[in-house]
């Protein structure tokens, strides 16, 4: 990548996340033909990638997830009705979890698929285990996954009570979101005490730390935490999310090539 225009294109796409060529041309004040030449070159260099087909083509940085839809849902101050792609019940979430099976060919490893499914399952089920009757407005969790470049991104979010509120009921020494989030991942504790639970996130953490090219970032209440080689990468993708006092948002990244 050498030209100044190409550098500008990358800066704009990084800032916006995804952008249509027509919007890009307006911002750069260049002809569509000139823009197309630069885009083609950046795609060939694997710096950016196109998504969807014309006329809806958008460009994004290679390897980045599309978080716009989830951002709208998770960050809205009030929601009265869920869009249809929210899993309002555990059964719907379980059904959608089986869509991971479509990735069998892309992953080329049954072992990796086994770990990805069970890890996502633990996080998604936590949404229901710890928020039944405690949702801030609408019930359910947002669950999606996408392959972008060399990574599989998995997003799971809910508008529930958040980890601090859940854990502080069983351990009064937990004083804030930061402490609650760290303890949730690193110690055996459950907001559903005295039920013998609390190993789900330890399992998640073991799997993320079990190999290179994996990462997780979690945002709950006003705290964020990340683990794994790609943990910071996940956190960077979430940096434009406003910190909310409710809900939990988890982004995982698995290297698949």
């Amino acid at each position: 990548m050498k030209t100044q225009t190409k550098s500008q294109i990358v800066k704009i796409i990084t800032k916006k996340g995804r952008i249509r060529p027509s919007d890009l041309a307006k911002l750069l004040k260049i002809t569509p033909q000139a823009l197309h030449r630069h885009l083609k070159s950046l795609v060939a260099e694997k710096i950016i990638q196109s998504n969807e087909s014309p006329p809806k083509t958008v460009y994004e940085i290679t390897g980045s997830p599309d978080l716009e839809k989830i951002k709208d849902w998770f960050c809205s101050s009030k929601i009265t009705q869920n869009p249809p792609d929210i899993s309002e019940t555990r059964d719907v979430f379980q059904g959608r979890l089986s869509k991971f099976k479509d990735l069998k060919k892309s992953l080329q490893s049954d072992n990796l698929l086994a770990l990805i499914i069970s890890t996502a399952g633990e996080i998604g089920n936590n949404s229901f285990d710890h928020n039944m009757g405690q949702w801030s407005d609408v019930p359910g969790c947002f669950f999606t996954f996408q392959i972008s470049g060399e990574f599989l991104w998995v997003v799971i979010a809910d508008r529930g009570q958040g980890i601090f509120k859940s854990l502080s009921k069983v351990d009064a020494s937990i004083k804030n979101d930061d402490v609650a989030l760290k303890i949730a991942f690193e110690k055996q504790i459950s907001g559903r005490s005295p039920e013998k639970r609390g190993n789900g996130l330890k399992y998640v953490l073991n799997n993320i730390l079990g190999s290179k090219s994996r990462g997780i970032a979690c945002h709950s209440g006003r705290a964020q935490i990340c683990y794994g080689d790609l943990g910071m990468k996940c956190l960077e993708e979430m940096e434009n999310f406003p910190l909310r006092s409710y809900g939990t948002f988890t982004l995982m990244c698995w290297g698949i090539k």
Binding site: D110, A114, L115, I116, S118, G121, N125, R197, N199, Y203
Partner: peptide, 10 residues
């Protein structure tokens, strides 16, 4: 079986 989670197995 493709995948098992610790919550189910526990």
């Amino acid at each position: 079986v493709i995948s098992v989670g610790p919550s189910w197995l526990d």
